[in-house]
Nucleic acid binder design. Structure first.
Lengths: 224, 224
DNA sequence: CCTAAATTTAGCGTATAAGAAACATAATTT
DNA sequence: AAATTATGTTTCTTATACGCTAAATTTAGG
């Protein structure tokens, strides 16, 4: 009754206070008795499987939240860091299909990889094989018009201001359809290594790759 | 004793049979009595929080596995999925400091949360407390000029085309400094729920929040 | 088929979870 | 100030978790 290292009580009290809920309200939301909730918050009792499910459902939180394990593994070595990339700065990688400008590369342990890209290919023949990689991908069209091709879906046309989110294990390709090559901001939830591997893998050759740093000003499509 | 829809028992039996373990072996691994395990497998009893943790640890599985959440939602629900948000579309949430437009909300289990935001605050006094939340944050300036304030760093000025990546547990705030409110694309590596919690928690009040869907065209700063 | 070992299930006692209601305390109202 | 309300804590009672032991079932060898 004393030695609780669980954190369940702490979690419950935290969220309840933060949301300005009373025990009665939580009781009504979850179906658990007020007295039970009080005891849980004070670490005077545990909860059974069924009640845990009931509690999580009532609070509208994922069951995992109740097991405070998590914050530890999500961001181990990255606390309090910041990196700024100015317009045009970054690590430039060029392939036949895209110019990639990897951003904020000073920070290595990122859980997301932001990339500015210029799209060169204008047809799937020219593009070649679909790209596949781990994680998820979000793309915002900065300028121009592109055609998004993916497995399982019809091609879609995206204009400046449009964006798309998809599972990147699904094969995908971007084609420019505007007069000037389209420019996109692409954020991937995977590692840079994994991404670059997928480039090489898809394309088949590294000869197609040139590395540089700073400034993609050479391409005619840079504005501002 | 009969009506268990939990699936805990099924899960335990499944994994045990698959691994060719006996109840005795599981008992030794976990410290739970053989009889207890038997009853759990036959859905004749539930387990308390403490025993659940013990069980998961002993089996060497993530605690989540024990709950119906299982493999169901982690990857399968998202494989091969895609969502497009057209210019101006999304879930609009307004606070005193920002107009948030949550994008691609049809997909629920995203590992990144993309948001278009319009910045209203022009001074830290006006802004109030720093925002803190789990995960990492990447922000690209779409239009205008802003001033980024964070803990541990001097304020930085970002113009259209600039971007920044940082640990979001570090307090942060964006201020507009251009004539028209600055517009940013912000991608966070955390859950939408967590983000919205941080809004409510920091501000202290929900009265500041109004929910709508579709079109933030009302704001004067929308272009294109 | 029978016996013995291994494995699972069932009975029982104690500890504890869980709800109802009484109690304590602070905030509001009359 | 007394009464009322809102909120959280403490009994107290019932239901259930959980481990010990024993019974039942399954498996393996003869």
């Amino acid at each position: 009754m004393t030695d609780q290292k669980t954190g369940l009580g702490d979690f419950l009290r935290d969220i309840r206070i933060r949301k300005h809920w009373t025990l009665l309200e939580v009781s009504e939301m979850t179906g658990l008795a007020v007295s039970t909730l009080s005891k849980v918050e004070n670490n005077q009792m545990s909860l059974t499987y069924d009640r845990l499910v009931q509690l999580a459902a009532g609070l509208g939180v994922d069951i995992v939240e109740l097991f405070g394990t998590r914050s530890a593994d999500s961001a181990p070595s990255f606390l309090g860091r910041r990196a700024i990339s100015r317009q045009g700065e970054g690590r430039l990688i060029q392939t036949g299909n895209y110019d990639y400008l990897y951003l904020c590369t000073e920070i290595s342990k990122k859980s997301m990889v932001p990339i500015l890209a210029v799209l060169h290919a204008r047809s799937m023949e020219e593009f070649g094989e679909f790209v596949h990689h781990d994680g998820q991908e979000y793309t915002y069209v900065v300028e121009g018009v592109l055609e998004l091709h993916t497995e399982h879906y019809e091609p879609a046309t995206l204009k400046a201001g449009d964006s798309v989110y998809f599972d990147a294990s699904m094969g995908h390709a971007y084609l420019s359809v505007s007069d000037t090559p389209a420019r996109i901001l692409c954020v991937c939830s995977t590692s840079e290594k994994e991404l670059i591997n997928s480039l090489v893998g898809a394309d088949g050759e590294v000869s197609n790759l040139k590395k540089k740093t700073k400034s993609m000003r050479k391409t005619s499509t840079i504005r501002k």
